[in-house]
Simulated scan of single mutants.
Amino acid sequence: MIWLLYPHLRCPQYIEPADVLEAAQAAGLRHITTVKVATDWDGAQLANPFAYQARR
């Protein structure tokens, strides 16, 4: 499991959430959830899809 932190909308280095999801899919990862971790930061939980299914 990986937590990827990226700047929120108000930051000059803002990254579209769709770009994060597209990059995760390209890397073979599955998006699990998104959370707000600080005023200017969001986080996306990513995991190997096979490892995630095995834990269920």
Rank of each mutant, 00 (worst) to 15 (best):
P49G: 08
L9T: 06
C11N: 13
D40G: 14
R10C: 02
M1T: 13
A18Y: 03
I15C: 09
H31M: 10
H8Q: 11
W41S: 05
Y14K: 09
A44R: 00
A54H: 11
N48M: 10
R30L: 15
Y6P: 05
P17Q: 13
G28W: 10
P12K: 14
I2E: 07
A47T: 10
Y14G: 06
A27L: 12
Q13M: 08
A18T: 04
Y6W: 05
N48F: 10
W41E: 03
A44I: 02
D40A: 13
Q13L: 09
R56W: 09
V35E: 06
G28I: 13
G28P: 07
D40S: 14
Y52P: 03
R55K: 14
R56N: 11
A18S: 06
T34P: 01
Y52N: 07
A44H: 02
A18Q: 05
E22A: 15
L29Q: 06
A54Y: 11
Y6I: 01
A26H: 09
N48V: 09
Q25N: 12
F50I: 15
A27F: 12
A44Y: 01
R30N: 14
P7G: 07
N48D: 15
H8P: 03
Y14E: 14
E22I: 08
N48S: 12
Q13D: 15
V37N: 00
P7D: 08
R56F: 11
A26R: 15
A44T: 04
P49C: 07
M1W: 06
I32F: 07
A47P: 02
A54M: 12
A38I: 00
H31G: 13
K36F: 02
D40W: 08
A51S: 11
A51V: 10
A54E: 14
H31C: 13
Q25V: 09
I15L: 13
V35K: 08
D19F: 02
V20N: 00
A51L: 13
R30C: 15
I2R: 11
H8N: 13
R30G: 14
P17Y: 08
M1K: 11
G28H: 08
I32T: 10
P17L: 12
D19K: 04
R56C: 14
F50V: 15
Q45Y: 01
T39D: 03
D19P: 01
A27K: 09
P7T: 05
W3V: 00
L29T: 04
T39F: 05
L29D: 04
P49K: 03
E16H: 09
A38W: 00
P12G: 15
D40E: 11
I2T: 06
A24M: 07
